[in-house]
Amino acid sequence: MKIKPAFTEQIVKKILFISTAFTVLILLFIIFYILKNGLSVIDLEFLLTSPKELGRAGGIFPCIIGTILLPLIAIIIATPLGVGTAIYLTEYKREGRLTRIIRFGTECLAGVPSIIFGLFGFVLFVIYLGFGWSILSGGLTLAFMILPTIIRTSEEAIRAIPYSYREVSLSLGGTKWQTITRVVLPSALPGIVTGVILGIGRSVGETAAVIFTAGSSLRVPASLFDSCRTMAVHFYILAREGISMENAYGTAAILIIAILFINLVSYWLMHRFMAKFS
């Protein structure tokens, strides 16, 4: 007997729907599982005191500082490079061999695994340039890692700005650079910020590239040349060495909340931005 196409259609649709629902459930499960076990650990003391006995007791204050400082250094370095690249690709160069090469380089860099960044940052910054395990080494390594994200998002944002804006500015006697800085970049700003925020998100969750460049000191850093431990690294050490499951859950919960927040903000920004220009 031949199965009717309409019947197959129904079955296929159900299977596809169930698969999608399953995927979304995995995400929700991870989030709820971590939050359920971790939220009860979080209180002001947990946030504002230093760890005791390697993290068995006490809070995670130094790790929060580390998690703020490393991405901060990273975006301070990566944003000008990334936006500059995006401007060059969109405003100065016609599509051609050069833009293809640069774009290919960006794609490749985006695909480089974080452990390779860790190795590289370790030889270049920690050893060769003598920065040691430090916030600076970690921040620089992260900057290289998030550069492709910032380039791609900025490029997309700059491309979304109507061509007529540029024409108007040029026809009013603006130079190319004036047109870029006074019309194109201000209009593209929300999109560019989205890329920066996504870069922060990646940095916050990163472990492999950070642990070999910023180290894992539990002291509150006093300078850029001090080692520090981010929340992700702290969580990894707590969980893998079985130091304290309770504090591991607490740290993970803060990490998850931060990631959720960062992603929601960037999504909201990009959504609003794209709605305005398309």
Binding site: T85, L89, I102, V112, F120, K176
Partner: peptide, 26 residues
């Protein structure tokens, strides 16, 4: 304007420079 364009060209090669640096050091 020319200076700016050269500056931007240099930043545009940053990703490729980083890739090469990674390759060389490793």
């Amino acid at each position: 304007e020319r200076l700016i364009q050269s500056g931007l060209l240099i930043t545009a090669f940053s990703t490729i420079a980083i890739l090469i640096l990674i390759g060389v050091f490793i």
